[in-house]
């Protein structure tokens, strides 16, 4: 493979949300609205506008910006969970989003069954899970609880299991929304190390974090997003500009 091959290409991506959408719309609500003479106005909100950037193979790219700047939306678009309203996202290789831990668990099933179920949801093959099963179990330190339904687990145990399943692959493109560290102190250190070694391990990483220190430590390239626009793209010097900007906002 070429060194300069692009793994992710984001071209002129815009994302529009319609804030008028009533989640869980019901007929009752409709009658109430009609009765009050309330009209459904279309409130549009552009979460992302005209974003363009490319990520090379092996690059670790960090996204910074204030809350609600559009960072998480951007990651969702790259992961394929959302389709952009305009523009195009191309990914070359397997994309692995570090999903919120345990989202795919069925609490009535045992830990063993959940490893397979959650693995399948993350897009792993059966062979892969078979091969890595022991590794997952060892990492989670839940050997004795393998055949216990997850609903009897403590939240720390669930987080450990979920983390172990989620981080077992070496994807070509890794999407990380905040570094996860879970469990007790010892496991937190272990899980953070695992994440750092995944990020540092030569994969292409898209990484969102509010910890400027982590971004500075890990990333080759930094994209600063503000109000859905790319404010700056560049090296680590962007971090300083960002901090200055944030300080300015406070003062």
């Amino acid at each position: 493979m070429e060194q300069n091959q692009y793994m992710v290409e984001v071209e002129n991506v815009s994302m529009r949300f319609n804030l008028g959408i009533e989640k869980g719309f019901s007929l009752k609500q409709w009658f109430v609205d009609v009765g009050k003479g309330k009209k459904h106005e279309k409130k549009e909100f552009w979460a992302l506008t005209d974003l363009t950037f490319k990520v090379k193979k092996g690059e670790v790219i960090g996204f910074i910006g204030s809350n609600g700047a559009g960072k998480s939306t951007l990651l969702k678009v790259v992961a394929g969970v959302m389709k952009p309203t305009k523009g195009e996202v191309k990914t070359y290789g397997t994309v692995c989003p570090m999903i919120e831990l345990g989202a795919g668990f069925d609490y009535q099933l045992t830990a063993r069954e959940n490893i397979y179920l959650n693995g399948a949801i993350m897009g792993y093959s059966k062979e892969l899970i078979d091969r890595k099963f022991q590794e997952i179990v060892d990492f989670s330190e839940l050997q004795e609880f393998l055949d216990v339904p997850v609903q009897n687990f403590s939240s720390g145990m669930i987080a450990r299991l979920a983390f172990s399943v989620a981080t077992i692959v070496d994807p070509e493109i890794l999407i990380v929304d905040e570094i996860l560290s879970v469990g007790d102190m010892a496991f937190q250190a272990k899980s953070e190390n695992k994440m750092l070694s995944m990020i540092g391990g030569g994969t292409t990483v898209l990484f969102v974090s509010h910890s400027i220190e982590q971004i500075r430590k890990m990333c080759d390239k930094v994209v600063w997003i503000e109000h859905g626009h790319v404010q700056r793209i560049g090296g680590k010097e962007i971090c300083d500009e960002y901090i200055e900007f944030m300080n300015g906002k406070q003062g």
Binding site: D106, E113, I121, S125
Partner: peptide
């Protein structure tokens, strides 16, 4: 091929939950 395994897992999950 890619999602065949997920499909199997979802079906077998329903079975396990139903009859457990």
């Amino acid at each position: 091929k890619k999602y065949n395994f997920l499909l199997r897992q979802l079906v077998s999950r329903d079975f396990k939950v139903k009859y457990k």
